[in-house]
C-alpha cells in the first residue's frame, strides 16, 4: 500500500514536470491535427517521407532557410533518410556522394589567399543561402528565415505547428484582421500575420516515387525531414532506450528478490 502511494506520487510528480514544461506553449496560432511516423515510444522516421521531404526542402525551402548544423554526410547516417545498409559509412555511400555533388561550397584561402568554390564533399555542411543574418533579412523584407536544423524542437508542438503553418495560408484575411503590405495571412502563426509568403503550392515538386505532391503531402514530408534534422539520433536513442528499460526491469526484479530474501526473517 505504502509502495503504491509512493509510486503514485512519483508518477504524479513526473506528470507534473511534464505538465508545467510545455504549459507556456499553448499560446500562438491554431494547430491542425496531424500525425507523424516518429511520434510515440516506438516511432521511427518514415524514410520515404523523409526523402521526399528532403526534395521539398531542396526545391522549396533552401533558397531562404539554412540548415547549418546538418552535414551532407548526416543524410546517410543510421536512422537518416538516405541510410544505406551496404554503405554504413556515409562518406562512401554513392547516394550521399551524388547529393554532395549537387552543391558547391566556398573553401580556402588558397595559396594566393583567395577563397574559391569547389564541389561539396559529404563532410561539408549544407551551404547557407545568405552570407549572414543581415543579408537574409535584407532579402526577405526584414524577416529572418529561421535555420531549419533545430526548428522542429525549437517550437512548441513543433511537427504539428510547422505542418499547420505550411497548410493554413489563406488568400483573404477575415474581417478585422489587417495585413500589412508584404505580409501574409496565416492563422497558424501567432498574430495571424507572417512575413513568409506561401512556400508550397500544388504539384510544386515532382516526386520520383509518384506520390501526389499536394500541399498537405509536401508539408507532411518536409516536417518529417525537419524532425529528422533536429533529432537525428532519435531512432538509435529509442532502440537503446528499450534495451535499457528491459535491463532495468530485470535488475529491479532481481534486486527486489534480494530485498525480500534479506528481510525475510526480520519483522519490519
Amino acid at each position: 500500500m505504502r509502495l503504491f502511494t509512493l509510486t503514485a506520487t512519483l508518477i504524479a510528480a513526473a506528470g507534473l514536470c511534464l505538465g508545467t514544461g510545455p504549459a507556456t506553449a499553448s499560446e500562438g496560432g491554431e494547430l491542425k491535427a496531424s500525425h507523424f511516423s516518429f511520434e510515440g515510444v516506438y516511432g521511427t522516421y518514415d524514410k520515404a517521407a523523409a526523402q521526399r521531404g528532403f526534395q521539398v526542402y531542396q526545391e522549396a525551402c533552401s533558397f531562404c532557410h539554412s540548415m547549418s548544423l546538418v552535414a551532407i554526410r548526416n543524410l546517410g547516417d543510421p536512422g537518416a533518410p538516405f541510410y544505406d545498409e551496404e554503405h554504413p559509412n556515409p562518406n562512401e555511400s554513392p547516394v550521399i556522394k551524388a547529393i554532395a555533388a549537387m552543391f558547391t561550397v566556398t573553401d580556402g584561402p588558397d595559396i594566393e589567399g583567395d577563397m574559391f568554390e569547389r564541389p561539396a564533399r559529404p563532410s561539408d555542411y549544407f551551404p547557407a543561402p545568405f552570407a549572414n543574418d543581415q543579408a537574409a533579412r535584407a532579402s526577405n523584407g526584414g524577416a529572418l528565415p529561421p535555420d531549419f536544423s533545430m526548428l522542429v524542437r525549437a517550437r512548441a508542438h513543433g511537427p504539428q505547428y510547422i505542418y499547420s503553418l505550411l497548410t493554413s495560408y489563406a488568400d483573404e484575411a477575415p474581417e478585422g484582421v489587417e495585413i500589412r503590405d508584404g505580409m501574409n495571412y496565416n492563422p497558424a502563426f501567432k498574430g495571424g500575420m507572417i512575413g513568409m509568403p506561401p512556400p508550397l503550392f500544388e504539384e510544386q515538386v515532382e516526386y520520383s516515387d509518384g506520390t501526389h505532391a499536394s500541399v498537405e503531402q509536401m508539408a507532411h514530408d518536409v516536417v518529417t525531414f525537419m524532425a529528422w534534422a533536429a533529432d537525428p539520433k532519435m531512432e538509435v536513442r529509442k532502440r537503446m532506450g528499450w534495451m535499457v528499460m528491459i535491463y532495468l526491469l530485470i535488475f529491479a526484479l532481481l534486486m527486489y528478490g534480494s530485498y525480500k530474501a534479506v528481510w525475510r526473517d526480520v519483522e519490519h
Binding site: L254, S258, A261
Partner: peptide, 16 residues
Amino acid sequence: RRDFIYIATGAAGAAG
C-alpha cells in the same frame, strides 16, 4: 536459493 538471487543481482549490476 537465496545465494543464487544475491549472485544474480550482483551479476546483473556488474554487467550493467
